[in-house]
């Protein structure tokens, strides 16, 4: 009796299982979806970091949209122009040269430069310090220096420098933008490689007070505006702003008299030498 129940159970369940799997196998054939083989090829050409830098959730979605023609061939900021070329070959289209995009720290307020308002002993994170009281530096716009960007970088392209300012290693930076996203003060910006002149300050304070906050602060004196062609550099909200549409990829400073040296030429010798050390 017991054995019989066992056999019946095994037989009926096994039979049902076999029946359903046969049905599913037939359905699988009937409802087979043909996928574009190019999607797999494009996916192979991509770096596969799934960083989300292109704006799609992962490399798979990006590949799908490239093949559909929605996403640009050079839409992957991580892959070099070789990647774009490879994808273009798969799809049989011309690839526009993609400018490499690099994360730039728009602040020079290290330990020596910036004035201090107190000692911060809270959680060692930029976000925490920003929410609590803005860290220990007096400047309310500058880098907090707790290295949230260092942790956020999936490619180890950011290291913390000796003056508590993160350094971006240009060779390793892929331009995914994760660091710019986590920075609570938006002091990291993504710039194309051909933006050679950058204003490394985000401080919007008025001139005299700004000068007391940091020695490398932009006080919006306007010397650079006068030194440049009209429209190339503008003063906006107490900050010099370069209009790259007009300024182009020049690598000469509009003025060599910037009082606080907050305009720098990139790629800078300083950042390279510090990494070697």
């Amino acid at each position: 009796m017991e054995l019989q129940t066992l056999l019946i159970s095994m037989g009926s369940m096994g039979g049902l299982g076999a029946l359903f799997s046969a049905g599913l196998a037939i359905a699988n054939k009937a409802f087979y979806v043909e996928e574009d083989p190019r999607i797999a090829q494009v996916l192979d050409a991509l770096p596969g970091a799934n960083c989300g830098g292109c704006g799609y959730p992962g490399c798979g979605n990006f590949a799908e949209n490239v093949v559909k023609g929605i996403a640009p061939v050079n839409g992957c900021p991580v892959g070099s122009s070789d990647t774009a070329k490879e994808i273009a070959e798969i799809l049989g289209v011309e690839a526009a040269a993609s400018q490499k995009i690099i994360a730039r720290l728009m602040c020079q307020g290290g330990l020596e430069e910036s004035a201090v308002k107190g000692v911060y002993t809270g959680i060692q994170s930029c976000l925490a310090a920003h929410i609590l009281n803005g860290g220990d530096k007096l400047c309310e716009y500058g880098c907090l220096g707790f290295g949230d960007c260092v942790k956020a970088c999936p490619f180890d392209a950011i290291v913390m420098g000796p003056d508590r300012l993160p350094i971006v290693i240009e060779a390793k930076c892929t331009g995914c933008g994760n660091c710019a996203e986590v920075c609570p003060r938006d002091v990291i910006e993504m710039h194309p490689e051909n933006h050679h002149i950058l204003v490394l300050c985000k401080n919007l304070d008025k001139g005299k007070y700004a000068g007391s906050v940091c020695t490398k602060v932009c006080i919006a004196c306007g010397l650079c505006v006068r030194g440049a062609e009209p429209g190339e550099v503008e003063l906006k909200n107490g900050l010099a702003v370069i209009n790259y549409d007009k300024f182009g990829d020049k690598d000469v400073l509009p003025t060599d008299r910037c009082p606080n040296n907050c305009m720098l030429v990139f790629p800078s010798a300083k950042s390279v030498s510090q990494i070697d050390a």
């Binding site: 369940m13 049902l16 299982g17 359903f20 599913l24 359905a27 699988n28 409802f31 087979y32 979806v33």
Partner: peptide, 16 residues
């Protein structure tokens, strides 16, 4: 068993 197989079927169908 029934439900799982049916869902598989629906999934294939919707994907198609």
């Amino acid at each position: 068993l029934v439900i799982a197989s049916l869902v598989q079927l629906v999934e294939m169908f919707i994907r198609k």
